[in-house]
Design a protein around this nucleic acid. Sequence first.
DNA 1: ATATATGTTCGCATTATTGCGAACGCATGT
DNA 2: ACATGCGTTCGCAATAATGCGAACATATAT
Lengths: 115, 115
Amino acid sequence: MPTRKKATKTRKPTSDALEVLHRRYVEGKPQMRSLLEEERSNSTVARQLCRIREKAGLSQRELAKLVGTTASVICRLEDADYEGHSLSMLRRIAMALNSRVEIRLIPASRKHLRI
Amino acid sequence: MPTRKKATKTRKPTSDALEVLHRRYVEGKPQMRSLLEEERSNSTVARQLCRIREKAGLSQRELAKLVGTTASVICRLEDADYEGHSLSMLRRIAMALNSRVEIRLIPASRKHLRI
DNA sequence: ATATATGTTCGCATTATTGCGAACGCATGT
DNA sequence: ACATGCGTTCGCAATAATGCGAACATATAT
């Protein structure tokens, strides 16, 4: 696994795992990556990428050509375990698929409400 | 300017600039960065970062310590012209401020509706 | 069997972002 | 004047993401 990093599978079945993670992150080792929230968010991004690509009826190679990269990069980004997303790449893909990237920093408590 | 990159200031006062940008991006030079949309999104991220930090009553150095970095990094990210956001750093900051990062890839046409 | 298209993984060079310290201008207070 | 804290900018090393080609497995079709 060269560029790929396995997402940490440590899961607490507790309901308020975010509180635990927050305390661990802020008080403990700040460099350490978040666990639950990050993985969930990542897989969401990957699923969204895959969804809008297939919705556009494009293969990974075709999208890669539009974006200006290769299929391997697209494949990486669509992998649910991939953590290394960058906003610039997300924007490039979104732009190629006539979409846009929306980022929101919202309080951790409230779940995502319907838009 | 070592790490900093100036945001392209080229703006079309036209209403549907996204169409223009999309055509230019997809058909023309795919490597080229988007203009209007990217800058707008960036400044939004920067503003959000600054907002949630000040809302938490933290200075850039204090937040940097929580996140596990230095004030210069925070300052960079809060600069509206900064383009180099990464999801991992956004998540680290959001986690330190008891928030979370939400990413959405949505069709370019519709504006952001209220949540 | 051959050809084609797809998604996938790998290795390595290139580029971008972070890490970190230092210094500056400015304001505030002692 | 001096000290402190704030945001900011710079330079450079270290890390991480991309760029790119190659190869593989699978499915479909000729």
